[in-house]
Design a protein around this nucleic acid. Structure first.
Lengths: 167, 167
DNA sequence: ACAAACTTTCATTTATTTTTGAAAGTTTAA
DNA sequence: TTAAACTTTCAAAAATAAATGAAAGTTTGT
């Protein structure tokens, strides 16, 4: 396999993975492309490499910056903007984890708390509902807290987790 | 908030979450419905509660069984099949983690290994590509191993993780 | 062996999500 | 202040994913 083919395969694969994880395909592809580029990439180049429209490139680059995993760069004497991806994987994973916690887990917790707090009429049905949603609330809360703690380490959290856990 | 409203809210919320996580909305809703039911539910009831067609119910129940988080149950003297969800959350999370590892992480690792193994012509571009995809491979492999180890505990793995990690 | 009771399949339809591209907006340099 | 160079927005179009429902398939009791 030669370079171009490998690069393309990587971008495609990362894109497909993204869509299984609630991130859209193009967004994941752009991220993949930037991550393996040795220097900052212009919007024009992104459009060219991925064969996408200007609007699409603009919106997804913006979204990636909102996630905090792609940065704008300005080059001296250049009017255009260039983009780079977060390349440190510990940092990348931490940012993704935090963002998903904020966007998905926290709101879900709020709802779980609400629905598990109804007062029961003591039918078997309602008792089961309250019991299960309460358990879910506790579980998700605990998981979210663990995530928080783990990502506090930032550098090498994965390695530290391995060390802590394997012994 | 009264019971029916709470139940509906829970099912809707779980469904929306599902679609952000690569599981389709109906599949997640059915799972939510079964999880808070005190007894096994027939396909007819699922259709009725969620207002979905027979085909849809059948396909998604099947998919949930493929994931190993919904079970068929037979009642004496009843021709129909009934369904229950895995209610133990440790067990549920373990099954989901294992399934996603098998379906998504393992295939991604295979590709990462492939693309990171091209031989370089020593351009800066290719060097960067190989370096970054190699790092990714190592990272994802390590993460997958940690997941494996954690889910081996099965019972109370989350609690055990908290204990190990907080001290 | 038949038929009633039930489940699965899959071609078609429907709904949702993503993409496009042209117009509007912004920034910079002269 | 003007215009060139660039980016963003968003309504409409295209692509993708999910749902429907009728027909085919299966199982069970008589």
């Amino acid at each position: 396999m030669e370079f171009k083919e490998a690069k393309n395969k990587f971008v495609q694969t990362w894109g497909a993975l993204g869509s299984q994880w609630g991130i859209n395909k193009t967004m994941a592809q752009i991220h993949a492309l930037l991550m393996v580029s040795n220097e900052a990439v212009s919007m024009e180049e992104v459009m060219e490499e991925l064969q996408i429209s200007r609007g699409n490139a603009s919106m997804n680059l913006r979204a990636l910056m909102d996630w905090g995993i792609v940065y704008k760069e300005y080059k001296a004497g250049e009017r255009r903007e260039f983009f780079t991806a977060e390349k440190d994987l510990d940092e990348l994973a931490v940012k993704i984890a935090r963002e998903r916690s904020k966007r998905e887990i926290k709101p879900a917790l709020k709802i779980l708390k609400e629905v598990s707090s109804i007062q029961s009429n003591n039918t078997a049905e309602e008792t089961q509902f309250i019991e299960q949603t309460t358990k879910l609330y506790d579980f998700v809360l605990k998981a979210d807290n663990v995530l928080d703690k783990i990502t506090e380490y930032k550098d090498n959290w994965l390695t530290k987790l391995v060390v802590k856990f394997m012994k």
